[in-house]
């Protein structure tokens, strides 16, 4: 296959991969961010201690996270068909990706928010802030650099998952690499698709690092 043809193939792969990755990340955060906040504030000794709820949430998240993505993808076929209209194709894979990623996002958010100095929360309470105000004005802004860093990690993780889209009739770089490399022995295409994946991950991670540093005012 000529370089031109490979590039056309890989370029479409990049677009498909991005089309699966970014909306999935967005919806995973829509669910995972509030859940992560809830995981933190419901801890014992935090601003809205609810130990039972905290334990139950933790168990559910651990359960979801322990199912391998490929299996979750298959298990979710009936649900995906209802939610997305169809269970196969590039677009419909967004739903299982979200379901698989949001517990991971919740844990990342939890980790970031736990880094916030408890003294700040105490100061916020002493000022007469409500729970919602503490979340909005203290927890999230103070954890922002860490949250952005976590988001870069989440995006790259979801991007890696999209490689399995081929199993459900989806496209993308992973599908190209498997179809051409494994099935047709066209290793040039496989390498090109893999390099494109690596480059995408690198760009996202580098942008994430730059943004994290730019947002962090803790250093002089």
């Amino acid at each position: 296959m000529t370089m031109d043809k490979i590039w056309v193939l890989v370029r479409q792969g990049i677009l498909d991969t991005a089309y699966m990755t970014f909306p999935s990340t967005f919806f995973a955060y829509l669910l995972g961010l509030p859940l992560g906040v809830l995981l933190v504030i419901s801890q014992k000794g935090h601003i809205r201690a609810m130990p039972t709820l905290n334990t139950v949430l933790g168990a559910v998240i651990n359960f979801l996270r322990s199912i391998p993505f490929l299996i979750l993808l298959v298990m979710l076929f009936p649900v995906t068909r209802v939610v997305m209209g169809t269970a196969i194709g590039t677009r419909s894979i967004i739903f299982p990706l979200v379901i698989s990623a949001f517990p991971y996002v919740a844990r990342m958010v939890e980790g970031s928010l736990k880094e916030v100095d408890p003294g700040l929360i105490e100061a916020a309470q002493s000022m007469g802030m409500s729970t919602f105000q503490i979340i909005r004005k203290v927890l999230l802004p103070e954890a922002l650099p860490s949250l952005v860093n976590g988001a870069a990690i989440c995006i790259t993780t979801i991007l890696a998952y999209t490689a399995m889209a081929g199993a459900a009739g989806g496209d993308g770089l992973g599908k190209i690499a498997i179809t051409y490399g494994l099935n047709r022995r066209e290793y040039g295409v496989m390498y090109a698709a893999s390099i494109a994946l690596v480059v995408m991950v690198q760009i996202i991670q580098i942008l994430g690092n730059i943004l994290t540093n730019a947002l962090d005012h803790r250093k002089r």
């Binding site: 100095d117 003294g119 700040l120 105490e122 203290v138 802004p141 103070e142 650099p145 005012h217 803790r218």
Partner: peptide, 10 residues
């Protein structure tokens, strides 16, 4: 407070 407890990102 002893440790001032200022918001570091503001």
């Amino acid at each position: 407070f002893q440790q001032f407890n200022l918001l570091m990102q503001k």
